[in-house]
Amino acid sequence: MAKLLAVTIVVIAILSAIPIIRNTWHPLPDVSAHGQAIDDQLSETMWEAGISFLASQIILAWFIWRYSGNRPGEKTKTFPGGATGLVAAAVILVGVEVFALGIFGVKAWANIYFTPPGADAMPVQVQAGQFAFYFRYTGPDGTFGAIHPEMLSEANQNFYGIDTDHDSDAKDDIVTAEMAVPVNREIRLLMHSKDVSHSFYVPALRIHQDFVPGLDLQIHFTATKVGRYEIVCSQLCGLGHYNMKAYLSVLSQDDFDAWLKKQAALQ
């Protein structure tokens, strides 16, 4: 039965690895300027983790196969080198592996979080609420109107609580239910939650950031490929969590201008 267990472990390990090697399920193709570093990091980790996984399972299976049963006449033996060798191997091998992953990972992370957005990045605000995203563009004046929480009313489609009657900054703000950005243009995304914690997860853009109620965050990205992608919420926010999503259209500059004009007319 030990031999059967050994075979089972090897078979499971190989079967598990096949979809990874054949790339059956994979992250959505990257359409961001910063995503390549993340993908490289992922594939490097996949190699190292995959080799560790297969090697450990196969050695485990091998020892189970080889060293089971009473085997009269044979004495129990100790692994050559004892624990010291293994500990040294673990510390050096895993230490180096982990250190390498950590260092390269810092680069991929720093690309996104430790570089300020360019001065000409286009500001877009996203507001998360139970259970929809709403987006805000500045309009021609380049500034967002102030948010008045007491004026916020989904019933009146004033999703941001802006005072269009008295606030000149707010007058030309464009609020939309769908996000659109021009291709190859850096976007400065201002993240605001009106109620509970949510998350802004765009797998295709390699963007994932929680909304923190009471703390407005800012991230920046550049989309490099025209297309229609999906923004989903990944932070449990209530009963409609599964349906909290929005579309992100990456458009050519001309299409984007036309889109924005159309949205402005609908305000």
Binding site: F133, N156, Q157, E178, A246
Partner: peptide, 25 residues
């Protein structure tokens, strides 16, 4: 009466393909 953008849920927006939804206040 502002129009309503239902693009978030395609089931909803499809229902208003020909007859765009508006606020009913």
């Amino acid at each position: 009466m502002k129009g309503i953008d239902m693009s978030k849920d395609p089931v909803c927006s499809k229902a208003h393909d020909t007859n765009p939804a508006k606020m009913e206040n």
